[in-house]
């Protein structure tokens, strides 16, 4: 089997008395496209936010290529309120801010597009190169790092060409059509040179044609950049089309895992999505 990239172990996220994510363990392996699906409010985005460091997990551990990026256990008031299992198994407390996790080569996009509104398409992608900047504050401010700046601009232009936005590079980002904004957001994430990409509902609000283009696009960038992809999605056509494996979340807990074919025929999943027929 290929190497493990992302590993979640008994991750629980509890807000007050609400258990948003309950004891979730999952694995994403090198080169896979894995989908995380589930009905609205199942806790998918919360899982993403735990992985990317927006939230510290209440209990559990997240590791990226064998390196623990988040680990915690209930503390303070939460110790009494804690409602899930595996207590005491994670004594350490490891926290990383989202920017540090991005610097560990894991980039993400957002469910509701979050582009830099006042900036051009070009600058949106260029700014993601900032984290790789080697020159210090003063030499950057005085433009003494011309070679580095030039390289950043070249790489940005190259990336825009790959994603097919080179003709729009001077437009203000938010003036693009919706589908292209999605594409731009993915390009911006790619600009940080990730090896793992997290996509939060990339097809939300797209029409069937755009969705089809998107799935081809995701496959293309995955091959070209050697990515491992974890995505949240509601659009089942897209999910079934591109995923190697699927995890299904319902009320914060995993209820199924498997290939698209297995998931489609899983009775628990069908119940979760469609409800139980009354007698």
């Amino acid at each position: 089997m290929s190497e493990n990239v992302l590993h979640l172990e008994n991750v629980t996220m509890q807000f007050g008395g609400v258990v948003a994510v309950n004891d979730v363990s999952m694995d994403v392996n090198e080169g896979e496209i894995v989908a995380l699906i589930g009905p609205n409010g199942a806790g998918k985005t919360t899982v993403f936010n735990v992985i990317t460091g927006v939230y510290a997990p209440t209990n559990g551990r997240v590791s990226l290529r064998g390196r623990v990026i988040a680990e915690d256990h209930p503390r303070g008031k939460m110790r009494k309120m804690y409602a899930a299992g595996h207590l005491g198994e994670y004594p350490r407390s490891v926290n990383n801010t989202p920017d540090r996790i991005t610097r560990l080569n894991m980039a993400r996009t957002f469910q509701n597009i979050r582009l830099f509104k006042s900036m051009t398409v070009f600058d949106n992608v260029l700014v993601a190169k900032h984290m790789h900047l080697k020159a210090n504050f003063f030499s950057t401010a005085l433009h003494l790092n011309a070679r580095e700046e030039r390289r950043m601009r070249e790489e940005t232009m190259e990336l825009l060409r790959i994603v097919g936005l080179e003709n729009e590079c001077d437009e203000i980002a938010t003036s693009l059509p919706y589908g292209q904004q999605r594409r731009l957001e993915i390009a911006r994430a790619l600009s940080t040179n990730p090896s793992m990409l997290l996509l939060d509902e990339p097809a939300a609000g797209m029409n069937p044609q755009e969705t089809e283009d998107l799935s081809a696009f995701i496959r293309e960038i995955k091959d070209r950049f050697g990515l491992t992809v974890l995505l949240i999605e509601h659009d089942m056509n897209l999910v079934m089309d591109i995923s190697d494996r699927i995890y299904v979340l319902n009320f914060g807990a995993l209820i199924a895992e498997g290939t698209p074919a297995e998931i489609q025929s899983n009775p628990d999943v069908i119940t979760a999505y469609l409800g139980v027929a009354e007698e």
Binding site: D99, F110, A128
Partner: peptide, 9 residues
Amino acid sequence: TAAEAMGIN
């Protein structure tokens, strides 16, 4: 939020 996700401290 997006800036932080792009690796900006």
